[in-house]
Each structure stands twice: as C-alpha cells, then as structure tokens.
Design a protein around this nucleic acid. Sequence first.
DNA 1: ATGGTGAGTTGGAAAATCCAACTCATCAGT
DNA 2: ACTGATGAGTTGGATTTTCCAACTCACCAT
Lengths: 169, 169
Amino acid sequence: MSWKIKPSFRLGRMAAPKDPRPCSIADALAVVGEKYSLLVLREVCLGNGRFDQLARNIGAPRDILATRLRRLVDAGILTKRVYSERPRRFEYRPTRAGLELEPVLMTLKEWGDRHLRDGVDLPMVVEHSCGSELVPRVTCRACGAPVRHEDLTARPQSPGWTVAGPATS
Amino acid sequence: MSWKIKPSFRLGRMAAPKDPRPCSIADALAVVGEKYSLLVLREVCLGNGRFDQLARNIGAPRDILATRLRRLVDAGILTKRVYSERPRRFEYRPTRAGLELEPVLMTLKEWGDRHLRDGVDLPMVVEHSCGSELVPRVTCRACGAPVRHEDLTARPQSPGWTVAGPATS
DNA sequence: ATGGTGAGTTGGAAAATCCAACTCATCAGT
DNA sequence: ACTGATGAGTTGGATTTTCCAACTCACCAT
C-alpha cells in the first residue's frame, strides 16, 4: 500500500488560524451574533424581559432562549432580576452595555426598513424625544457628516490587517 | 392503557407562530445574521473579495463560506464578477445595498471597541474623509441628537407589537 | 383535586457546522 | 512532459447546534 502524503505537509504550510484579524466586529458578533441574541435585546429594550414573553415574541425554542439568556447575562449585556418572591419569578433587563447596543439595532432596523419592507406590513415606528419618528443616521463624530463608504479608508496599523483598497460594485 | 392528553389540546391553545412580530430587525438578521455573513461583508467592503482571501481572513470553513456567498448574492448584497477569464477567477463586491450595511458594521465595531477591547491589541482604525479617525455616532435624522435609549419610545402601531414601556437596569 | 402560570429542563430527531481532502482548470518552472 | 502552485470551489463523514414537544417544579386559584 502506498502513502498519500497530506498536501498540508508537502510544504510546511502554516495551519490557518481561526480568525486572523483582531477585530471588534468579530468580537462583538461572538457575543451578540448568535441566532436570536439581538432579538432578545430588541425585546428587552422594549421592556419585555420575561421568559415566556421572550419565547413568544421572538419565536425561539425555550431551551435555546435559556442558553442565550445565560450567555448575555455572563457577557454583561443583560441582568436577571427577581420581580417576585413566592412565587419566584425573574425578568431580564439590559445593562448599560446592552442599552448601548440599541443604536446597532436601530441602524439595522433602518436598513431593513429601506431594503426589506415589502409595503404590506409597515415597519414599527420608534419615536424620538424630539417629537419626530426616529430615522437613525450614522455620522462621523468629528465632523458630523453621514458615514458613506466612499469617505472611509481603513488604516491597517494593527498587524494582521491587510486591505486591498475601497470596493464598489 | 390510559391516554395522556397533550396539554396543548387540553384547552385550544394556539400554536405559537415562528416570529410573531413583523420586524425589520428580524428580517435583516434573516439575511445577514447567519454566522460569518457580516464578516464577509466586512472583508468585501475592505476590497478583499476573493474566495481564498475571505476564507483566510474570516477563518470560515470553505463550504460554509460558499453557501454564505451564494445567499448574499441572492439577497442582492454582493455581486460575483469575473476578474479573469482563462483561468476563470471571481471576486465578490458589495452592491449599493451591501455598502449601506457598512454603517451597521461601523456601529458594531464602535461598540466592540468600547466594550470588548482589552488594551492588548488595538482596534483597527478607519479614517473618515474629514481627516480624523472615524468614530461613528448614531443620530436622529430629524434633530441631529445622538440616539440614546432614554429618548426612544416604541409606538406599537402595527398589529403584533406590544411593549411594556422603556426598560433600564 | 384540578387546572393554570412562569421559568425553565430533558431527550431524541433534524439540521447546520467543521474539517481535511479532493476536484478541475490553468499557469509557471525545469 | 512532468511537477508544483493557485483559485474556487465540492465532497463525505464526524461533531455540534437547533428544534420540538413534553416534562418538571413551585406556587396560586377554584
């Protein structure tokens, strides 16, 4: 019998690392990127923080929901608090860090409103304290201009970052 | 032998619908919420649109990556274009809709920078055309104020939306 | 004693992911 | 002509997650 040499060993090719880039996007997704996690946050931000409400409103299997809640509490995004002793009942609420994810949710919602709404059912309306409907816009903190792809340049200063220059279709 | 009656039938309890809420966040996540999808978008926005680059930079299994790319192309977020006949080679690029997800990415990145960076490896820097480092901020389009949870009120006008009032930890 | 609610847990089936290796076409070097 | 490399995937099998319905446990109401 003859041996087939593993191609990986023919030349000492390095094993590919899992996520080569030190990236806050990847890290954030590792925390809130699993299925249902952001929907949990949506509900919790709306004040619907009880297990059964969450299961119903999100449509998530109860066991999965339970593990997501554990994870989000561990990650410091949610807190679990007792709202009734005897019978013991709990409620999940967003922490500060959790609330600060709301802009992400709103930005995603706005994208969905523009690209995915079919005209049949209207998007939910969120009202801003200024009196008008909230249409979130992502701006540059320094100059205040809306963020558009054309205005961005990635600077690969941390090692592990290589870019090929801006891309447009 | 005695029958155990399914509790679901004891009282005519309605089967729980999958996602009861008509929600743009849920819809958006159905498109870009699967594992790796947003990382693909990150790379593609950086101009790294080739299969092997994507696989390396993201650390995704090649088969999964292939199905994600198909999905993102189908959803109109990416286009696949030939950059070389003979040998036939392809490249993925963001569409307009894809580019418009970049603010979501940047907002997520900013959250990660603030909450997840450990000080060991620095966050990647994105430069805005105004000259300073981009720190994205989500604002209300109407009044320009930064979006904070305290200033938001959900108006459940579409059916299926019930909220319990704002929540804070 | 029976039923209901809230917050989960359990067990088994179904689906998705992971991984290394394989394909196929083409080019580059010797 | 052969050997090796590159790009863009595909394939088969093991592992991990998800899904689902039912079950638990504690308490309250009738």
